[in-house]
């Protein structure tokens, strides 16, 4: 589904050049649940941002299906994100001025073309994560776990083919973190491809494959025995 070939990402300021990613080669199959681990500053989030097309590599090739994403303009990448990708963040990133239902609906706002029954999709997404009873509340009225579940609902409302989760349990307690992981596992079981960055070995063990990163490189890739 996804293939990264010799991906590099460098950041240059006035005097210093930092290499966040140095020669990443990675393939992710459809339906896979991949966990990425590594110490702080190893490039995990940078790799996730490139996979999510919110950042562009300095060198290398990113194939999404049979499309080379380097050839796409910014507007086309935005469209791709809206249609095929779902994001879940460590700090939830819900919009404070919108209710939970409206935040979930935002996941469909930038899609062009017919989208079937939007209302039904939104309700289904909220039901899926168990947040329907808080539909009319604002983010600041919810607990951390509820907010993260709302963010997952937003990520899946458009039936994305790839879900990217950047430390989705990082700001949650054990119980809420487990609930979120259960939802992600369940989504993967239904066929969603998930790439997750995590600091938690136990959560990484719930994925089908785990890669470890260090200093901008993938140093190991281990498939979990099923």
């Amino acid at each position: 589904m996804i293939r990264l070939e010799s991906i590099q990402r460098r950041y240059a300021s006035d005097e210093v050049e930092t290499t966040a990613l140095a020669d990443i080669n990675l393939a992710v199959a459809e339906g896979e649940f991949l966990a990425i681990m590594g110490p702080s500053g190893c490039g995990k989030s940078t790799l996730l941002n490139i996979l999510g097309t919110v950042d562009r590599p300095s060198a290398g090739r990113y194939m999404f299906g049979d499309r080379d994403l380097a050839a796409l303009a910014e507007a086309e990448l935005a469209q791709l994100r809206g249609r095929t990708l779902g994001f879940v963040f460590q700090s939830f990133n819900l919009i404070d001025e919108l209710t939970i239902q409206e935040n979930v609906a935002l996941g469909l706002a930038y899609r062009k073309g017919a989208q079937g029954d939007k209302r039904q999709r939104i309700e289904q997404a909220m039901d899926r994560v168990g947040i329907s009873h808080r539909a009319r509340h604002y983010p600041h009225q919810l607990s951390g776990g509820q907010q993260q579940r709302a963010a997952i609902a937003r990520a899946i409302v458009g039936d994305p083919s790839l879900i990217l989760a950047d430390e989705p349990t990082g700001n949650l307690d054990t119980e809420n973190g487990q609930q979120v992981m259960d939802i992600l596992t369940s989504l993967n079981g239904e066929g969603a491809t998930i790439i997750m960055v995590t600091h938690s070995p136990s959560h990484a063990d719930m994925a089908k494959r785990r890669i470890d990163m260090l200093d901008g490189r993938i140093v190991s890739s281990v498939a979990r025995a099923i």
Binding site: A78, L80, G82, F87, L106, Y110
Partner: peptide, 14 residues
């Protein structure tokens, strides 16, 4: 908010 909108598929012109 802008970053989220971009992540959700909002183009710069939108």
């Amino acid at each position: 908010e802008v970053a989220i909108r971009k992540v959700l598929g909002g183009s710069r012109s939108a």
